[in-house]
C-alpha cells in the first residue's frame, strides 16, 4: 500500500512539474495572441471559408512545435478573436500531434521502423481533419466565456498581456493538477498484468491502447518511447496509442471543458477518440 502511495506521489509531482513550464509558455503566447496581434490579422488569415481554414490551420499546427498544455489556451484566445472554432481547434490539435519534434521523437523511438513515423503523421493528420470537418459541419460553438473581462481592454499593453496571461493561467493550472492526480491514480490502480491479459485480438488491443492513451495523459513528445515498449501489442494498436493521446486524454478533456464549455469538450472528445481510432486502424492496415 505504501508503495502505491509513493508511486502515486512521484507520478503526480512529475506530471505537474513537467506540464507547468509548457502551460506558462502557452498562456504567454495566448496572451500575446489576445492583446498584441490586431484582430484584422486573424480575420484575414483564418476567418475565410472553413473548407480552406481547417486544412490550413492543421498545416500551421504541424509546423509549430507546441504541446497540449500550450495550444489549448491559444485556441481559446483565437476563438475569442473571431477565428472559426473548427479552424482554431484544428490548429490546437495539429500542433501537438504533428509537429516536427514529435515526429523526430517517434523516429528515434522506432528506429528501423520508418513506416511507423509515416503512419503516425498520416493518421494524426486525418484525425485532425475529421475532427475539424465535423466541428465545422455540426456548427459546434464553444460556450461563451462567462468572464469576458472588461479589464482586458483597459490599461497599457504590457498590463493587458499580464492580465490575460494571469487569467488563462489561473483558469487552467488547477485542471493540470487535477488531470495529473486522476492519471496518477489510474496508473497506480491498473493491474500490472493488464497488458498481457488483453494483448490478444487486434480489436481488443487497439481499444485497450486507445483507452490507455486517454488515461495515461502523456505529452506527445514522450509518448512514442512508452508506446514502443508495449512489445506484446500489435503495431496497429501501438499506432492507435500515439494517434489518440495527443488529441484526447484526461488532462486535455479538462482543459477543453474549462476553455470551451462542457458541450464542446464532449464533442471534441468523442469525435477525437472515434476519429483517431478509425484513422489509426485504416492507416495502420495500409502502412504497417
Amino acid at each position: 500500500m505504501s508503495n502505491a502511495v509513493d508511486e502515486w506521489s512521484t507520478l503526480f509531482t512529475a506530471m505537474v512539474l513537467q506540464a507547468l513550464p509548457f502551460l506558462v509558455l502557452g498562456v504567454l503566447l495566448s496572451a500575446a495572441v489576445a492583446v498584441l496581434v490586431p484582430l484584422q490579422v486573424w480575420r484575414w488569415i483564418l476567418a475565410r471559408r472553413t473548407v480552406v481554414a481547417v486544412p490550413a490551420a492543421a498545416m500551421c499546427g504541424a509546423v509549430v512545435p507546441g504541446c497540449e498544455c500550450t495550444t489549448v489556451p491559444i485556441a481559446g484566445r483565437l476563438t475569442e478573436r473571431g477565428v472559426p472554432f473548427a479552424a482554431a481547434m484544428s490548429f490546437a490539435l495539429a500542433s501537438p500531434a504533428l509537429n516536427p519534434i514529435v515526429l523526430l521523437a517517434t523516429a528515434a523511438a522506432f528506429a528501423g521502423q520508418p513506416s511507423m513515423v509515416v503512419a503516425r503523421f498520416v493518421a494524426s493528420f486525418l484525425t485532425v481533419l475529421i475532427v475539424g470537418a465535423y466541428l465545422a459541419a455540426l456548427g459546434v460553438q464553444p460556450a461563451p466565456r462567462r468572464s469576458t473581462h472588461d479589464h482586458d481592454a483597459e490599461g497599457s499593453t504590457p498590463a493587458r498581456v499580464v492580465a490575460a496571461a494571469r487569467h488563462d493561467f489561473t483558469h487552467t493550472a488547477g485542471l493540470v493538477v487535477l488531470g495529473a492526480a486522476v492519471a496518477a491514480t489510474i496508473r497506480v490502480a491498473l493491474p500490472d498484468d493488464l497488458l498481457e491479459r488483453l494483448g490478444g485480438s487486434d480489436v481488443v488491443a487497439v481499444l485497450t491502447m486507445a483507452v490507455l492513451a486517454v488515461v495515461m495523459a502523456l505529452c506527445s513528445e514522450s509518448d512514442a518511447f512508452v508506446a514502443v515498449s508495449f512489445v506484446t501489442f500489435p503495431p496497429i494498436a501501438v499506432l492507435a496509442f500515439m494517434v489518440v493521446g495527443p488529441i484526447v486524454d484526461l488532462r486535455l478533456l479538462l482543459m477543453y471543458r474549462s476553455t470551451f464549455g462542457s458541450r464542446a469538450a464532449a464533442t471534441i472528445g468523442a469525435l477525437g477518440f472515434v476519429g483517431a481510432i478509425i484513422a489509426a486502424t485504416v492507416v495502420g492496415r495500409v502502412l504497417l
Binding site: D6, E7, S9, T10, L11, F12, T13, V16, L17, T170, H171, A173, G174, L175, V177, L178, A180, A181, S258
Partner: peptide
C-alpha cells in the same frame, strides 16, 4: 475559478511531501 485551489496540493507536494524518485 474554484479549480485553482488544487494548485495548493501541487505546492504541498513540491515543498512539503517531496516524494522520492520511482
Amino acid at each position: 475559478p474554484r479549480s485553482f485551489a488544487l494548485v495548493g496540493i501541487a505546492i504541498a507536494f513540491l515543498l512539503v511531501v517531496r516524494p522520492g524518485p520511482l
